[in-house]
């Protein structure tokens, strides 16, 4: 079972404690939601997890992915997939190239890599859009392409930084369901940051609320 384990996390901004110590464990069957007002440090928690905390912040604590300590590793070796509010598809690459960029180098040979990418596009309902400029895709297609790009890099956990926020309401529900369903099928622990209670409800797991002072969840 994949687990993402955070223990004793204290996050500081300019030396002032934002929250913590915070400890919790995310498993594949319990997608966890972190909620709180803006400025409480919830997005910074994700930035700390991926190893790209802005310089104004400092943190102590450990993060383990399947028992392996990942804090201290460079971001590209942490095996964490992340989705932001915007899809952030690279605008200079085609849809297929965006996915190929994320595909681990272990899969060798041009033909083999193209096959994997094509299969992934098909799975995401994007077959036939491989050579397209991402800017020409619809909002839903872009969101699915971004999700598939994160998944094709073979992450062992999925981080979500309010990725449903900018989608219109019909699309939001559908994409939200897709994300959680996909993660469940792949046994990926999901850590979601949001201020929308509907997101937490859809996640269906524990909710940790950061109110600016500190409140450890579960």
């Amino acid at each position: 079972m994949n687990t993402l384990e955070i223990s004793g996390l204290v996050l500081r901004l300019h030396g002032r404690s934002l929250f913590g110590p915070l400890s919790f464990t995310v498993t594949a069957d319990r997608p966890t939601t972190i909620m709180g007002p803006s400025g409480c440090g919830k997005s910074s928690l994700l930035n700390w997890l991926i190893g790209m905390l802005p310089e104004a912040f400092s943190a102590e604590g450990t993060a383990r992915l399947d028992g392996r300590a990942i804090d201290g590793l460079p971001p590209e070796q942490r095996s964490l997939g992340i989705l932001f509010q915007d899809d952030l598809l690279f605008p200079h690459l085609t849809v297929a190239e965006n996915l190929a960029f994320a595909l681990p180098p272990g899969i060798k040979g041009r033909a083999a890599r193209e096959r994997v990418v094509a299969r992934a596009l098909e799975e995401a309902g994007l077959a036939g859009l491989a050579a397209r400029d991402p800017a020409t895709l619809s909002g839903g297609q872009r969101a699915r392409a971004a999700l598939m790009r994160a998944l094709i890099s073979a992450p062992q956990a999925l981080l979500l930084d309010e990725p449903f926020n900018k989608l219109d309401s019909a699309l939001r529900e559908r994409f939200r369901a897709t994300v959680f369903e996909t993660a469940r099928l792949r046994h990926l622990p999901v850590l979601l940051v949001s201020h929308d209670p509907a997101d937490a409800a859809a996640a269906g797991g524990p909710v940790i609320t950061l109110d600016g002072i500190s409140s450890p969840g579960n």
């Binding site: 991926i50 590209e76 992340i82 932001f84 960029f101 994320a102 994160a150 890099s153």
Partner: peptide
């Protein structure tokens, strides 16, 4: 430049 492009790329396994 939006720094999240670089963040995303790092999380996708690309080195600096």
């Amino acid at each position: 430049l939006d720094t999240r492009y670089a963040r995303t790329a790092r999380c996708l396994g690309a080195g600096p």
